[in-house]
Design a protein around this nucleic acid. Sequence first.
DNA 1: CTCAAAATATAGCCCAAGCTATATTTATTA
DNA 2: TAATAAATATAGCTTGGGCTATATTTTGAG
Lengths: 138, 138
Amino acid sequence: MTDAPPSDADRFARARRKQSVALLEDYVELIGDLIAETGEARVADIADRMGVAQPTATKTVARLKREGLATSRPYRGVFLTEAGAALADRVRARHRTVVALLIAVGVPQEAAELDAEGIEHHVSDRSLAAFEAFLKRD
Amino acid sequence: MTDAPPSDADRFARARRKQSVALLEDYVELIGDLIAETGEARVADIADRMGVAQPTATKTVARLKREGLATSRPYRGVFLTEAGAALADRVRARHRTVVALLIAVGVPQEAAELDAEGIEHHVSDRSLAAFEAFLKRD
DNA sequence: CTCAAAATATAGCCCAAGCTATATTTATTA
DNA sequence: TAATAAATATAGCTTGGGCTATATTTTGAG
Ligand SMILES: [Mn+2]
Ligand SMILES: [Mn+2]
Ligand SMILES: [Mn+2]
Ligand SMILES: [Mn+2]
């Protein structure tokens, strides 16, 4: 039992949940990138790269801290916790796989890169595994 | 010129915009389905199928009306405008194509159906065309 | 070392999307 | 046809995610 097909409501609720973590995923990925590129992640740089105002970035960083993904001290940069760094790595790998899959099925590179930024957050582990298998075929 | 590669900020902003219309797309698709299935779209049925409380559905229908996608009179059902019906058709077709593409690259059917509910809203026309071409190949 | 500039924080606003509780209207049935 | 049940609307709350304006802190010149 335990295995009736998911209802419409289940499916919609699941999509809503994924959406609510999408922004957090993009932030941790970006913070990880900034630290790798420049040694630190300043709020001003995060805001700039995300395309939002500085107070918006500050507020989202506060949420990352609340959720145990980042740390920071006033007027200092932002750092990822272990959990945050692990999430960033997973998110970055998934992002790349999604872009590669889109290109592999014939999506032009620029469209692939643009669409992947939203698509990635809805790709489950099962789908990701399928994408990887598809990319490995020949 | 007009063709520098999109910045990170552009890409993130675009994903945020798509996200803001995702719920409207799901609602018009669902309202169209209900009308096709049962002849009418009651707020209670919309809420039920979306997995939200009734006042939440009422409020979102109000937004659909504000955006010219639906109409309704107090204590009566919900109807789609021409624009709403056209959007519903496009969204439904895109939804099906996304599910088919996922299955075609090896995603198990249930995962495909679940993930498509979120993915669909980020698939651009260019990507959709590529998906269709890929599905038509042999 | 001081002071101006840059970075960050804070205050306060908006809207979307969710909720519960309750009032109102419509539909049904005794 | 009244009374009850069901559907819908409304009020009022929460949180997330955006913004501008401004206060505060840190940094870097001179
Ligand atoms: Mn993204
Ligand atoms: Mn990404
Ligand atoms: Mn959807
Ligand atoms: Mn859909």
